[in-house]
Amino acid sequence: MEERQPVGVPPVWEPTQTRVLDAADELIVRTGIHGVTIAALARRSGLSRPTIYRTWSDADDVVRAALLRRVGTLIGRFSAVADTRAALVDDILTFTALFRADDVYARLLDEEPEAFTRYTLQRVGSSQRLILGWLAAAIGRGQRHGSVRAGAPEEIAVMLLLIAQSAVLSHATVADLIDEDAWERELRAAVDGHLRP
């Protein structure tokens, strides 16, 4: 059996950029997306507006980068790319749990779910592309192992992302219809069924 390969490295941020992104995280948790302005970022990070504008064109750009960093951090918690269907299914369920527990994403899921329409549902952004690359690499390895069905890994990854994303974003909507254990069990079955040869 092949050894699991290291997961791709998330983007690296310079110290000044990190200060701005830390400020964005704090603002999102405290006030939501609408509280993230260049002026608020400057105040919270202790940096000047021109310094922020050297990297980002506007506050929306900073929010997108902050969300990308959060996803990169979550993916970075996996030490290796899954190489079997069972390992990939486990990783996807673990990722959804980490995503839902993350301070920034939990705040958005609970208080501002419409933010996901803007940042994830209107177009495929850099955060989703990072997830898709992670999934496609694992799908390819699972195919070589023989436990994942044939097909273009990138295409299978897109549908896996849609399945998991829909389940996470709709979780609160169906909480009265399905308990947490059942939600996890059914998501696991959906993901496993999509990958099974």
Rank of each mutant, 00 (worst) to 15 (best):
M1P: 13
E2L: 14
P6Y: 08
P10H: 00
P10D: 06
P11Q: 05
E14K: 14
Q17G: 11
T18D: 15
D22V: 03
A23R: 12
D25Q: 10
D25K: 05
L27F: 01
V29C: 02
G35C: 01
T37Q: 06
I38S: 13
L41I: 06
R44D: 11
G46V: 12
G46E: 10
G46F: 12
T51P: 04
T51C: 02
I52Q: 03
T55Q: 09
T55A: 12
T55F: 13
W56I: 02
W56T: 00
A65S: 14
R69E: 00
L74P: 15
I75W: 05
A80V: 04
A80N: 02
T84Q: 02
V89T: 14
V89G: 13
D91H: 06
L93S: 03
L93W: 01
T96E: 07
R100Y: 06
A101V: 06
Y105A: 10
R107H: 15
L108V: 00
L108M: 03
D110G: 09
F116P: 10
T117P: 00
T117L: 13
T120M: 12
V124T: 14
G125I: 00
I131G: 06
G133W: 07
W134P: 05
A137W: 08
G142S: 06
Q143F: 07
R144V: 10
S147G: 08
E154Q: 07
L169D: 07
A172H: 12
D176F: 08
L177E: 07
D179H: 04
D179F: 05
E184V: 11
R185P: 05
A190N: 04
A190Y: 05
A190V: 10
H194Q: 13
L195A: 03
R196M: 10
